[in-house]
Design a protein around this nucleic acid. Structure first.
Lengths: 209, 209
DNA sequence: ACCTGAACACCGTTCAAGT
DNA sequence: ACCTGAACACCGTTCAAGT
C-alpha cells in the first residue's frame, strides 16, 4: 500500500503477509513458481534481507506460498460442494472445482506439490502439509457423508476403509490434474470425456455393487 | 573414464552422454533434482561452458535427464509385465513396478514430471514428453491386450474409449505415486492396503460388469 | 565442431550496523 | 523486534579465443 519511503514506517507491520501476496502475484503473472527471494522483496518494497525476519530460508517462503495455495483450493472445494446432495454429485462437483483451480493456477498448483513438500519430508509438519491436509478433509467429509447415507460403499465403522477411499479418490483427481497440466492428455478429449472419465474413476470404487 | 587432463583428448567424444549420467548420479546422490549446470560440468571434468555445446539451455539438459528417467521407467514397466497373463495381473504388476521405481528414485521421478515438462508446454514435443509417451505406451499395450481378450471392458473398435482407459489408468497410478512421495498417504497403510486400493482403482473401471 | 577462460548480471545467505 | 547495506560464494549465460 504505502510504498513511498518517506511515509512508509520503518517497521512494516505485516510484511510477512505482503511478501506472500507478492510471491503469489509473481507466480501467477510469470506462470512460473521459480521466483527469486530478491524479486519478491523488490515487489514488496523492502530490502532483499527483510524477508529473513519472517522466513529463515527461502524454502520456508515457498512453503508459505504453497500453504496459501492449498487454502484457496480448499475454499474452492468447499464452495463447490457445500449443501450438494447426493454425495455422488458432491464428489463430482468437488473434482471439477479441483481441476478448474489447477487449470486456472497451473504454476501455483505445481508449487503446492513441488519443492515445498519435496524438501519438507521430515517429521515436523510444514505449513504446506497442514494446509494440504485441510483440503483433503473436504474430500473426506463428502465421502463420510456418502457413507452414512448409504450412497457410497464405505461403512461408518471401518475407519481404515474410509481413509483408503479418501486417499484413492484424491489420488485419482490429483493424477488426472497433473497429467493434464503436463500435457499428457490427448488433445482430442472433450470436457465431457473428462467428466465421464472422472465419474468412472471416482465412483466405480465407491458405489455399492 | 579418462579424467586426467594430460591423456584426455581435447574433444571428449560423447560428452553429452557423460553429462546426462553425471546429472543422474547427482540427482540420485543428493536426492534433489535442483542440480547446477556447473556442478554437472565439474563432475564430468569439463569447463562450465562445455555443456553449452550439447544443450542450448540448462532446461534442455533437465529435459534430457527427465527423458533418461522415463526410459528407465519404461524398461521397468516392460520387464515387470512382459508375457504376464491375464491382463489384470499385468496391469497390477505394472502399477507395482511403477510405484517401486518412484520410491527408489523419488527425486528423479519429481524431475520427470516437474520442471522439464512445465516449461516445455509449447507445441514442439520435447525429448522428455516423447519418452513419457513411450512409458505410457506400455500401459496402453496391456489395456489393448486385455480388451482383445475380453478381460477388460474396452472394445477394440472404440479408439476413444481405449485412449480414455489408458489416460485414467495412468492418472490413477501417477496420483497414488505422487501423493505417496509427498507424504499425503497415511503412514499406517500397509503394502497390502496399497495393492488392494490399486486393484480397486485400476480394475473397477475396466472390468465388465 | 568442440572446448576453454574471462566477464556480467543475478542469486541465497551471513553479518555488522542502524532504528 | 525488525530492517538496511556491504560482502561472499555461487549460478546461468554470453563472448572472444583457442585446437
Amino acid at each position: 500500500m504505502d510504498s513511498n519511503p518517506d511515509t512508509r514506517p520503518y517497521h512494516h507491520g505485516n510484511l510477512r503477509r505482503v511478501l506472500i501476496d507478492a510471491a503469489l502475484a509473481l507466480v501467477t503473472e510469470k506462470q512460473d513458481w521459480a521466483f527469486s527471494l530478491r524479486e519478491v522483496a523488490r515487489r514488496a518494497g523492502v530490502s532483499h534481507n527483510a524477508p529473513y525476519n519472517h522466513f529463515p530460508q527461502k524454502q520456508d517462503m515457498l512453503a508459505a506460498v504453497a500453504a496459501a495455495g492449498f487454502e484457496r483450493l480448499r475454499d474452492r472445494m468447499r464452495a463447490a460442494t457445500a449443501h450438494v446432495e447426493p454425495a455422488t454429485d458432491a464428489l463430482l462437483a468437488c473434482g471439477r472445482a479441483y481441476i478448474a483451480f489447477a487449470l486456472e493456477n497451473p504454476a501455483l498448483y505445481r508449487l503446492m506439490f513441488g519443492p515445498a513438500l519435496a524438501s519438507a519430508m521430515g517429521p515436523r509438519p510444514t505449513s504446506a502439509r497442514t494446509a494440504g491436509a485441510e483440503a483433503k478433509a473436504v474430500l473426506a467429509d463428502i465421502i463420510l457423508r456418502g457413507g452414512r447415507a448409504g450412497t457410497f460403499a464405505v461403512s461408518a465403522s471401518d475407519q481404515q476403509g474410509q481413509r483408503m477411499a479418501v486417499f484413492f479418490s484424491w489420488s485419482a483427481i490429483h493424477g488426472v490434474t497433473m497429467l493434464l497440466l503436463d500435457g499428457f492428455m490427448e488433445s482430442n478429449f472433450t470436457a465431457d470425456d473428462l467428466v465421464k472419465g472422472l465419474e468412472r474413476t471416482l465412483l466405480k470404487g465407491l458405489t455399492p455393487r
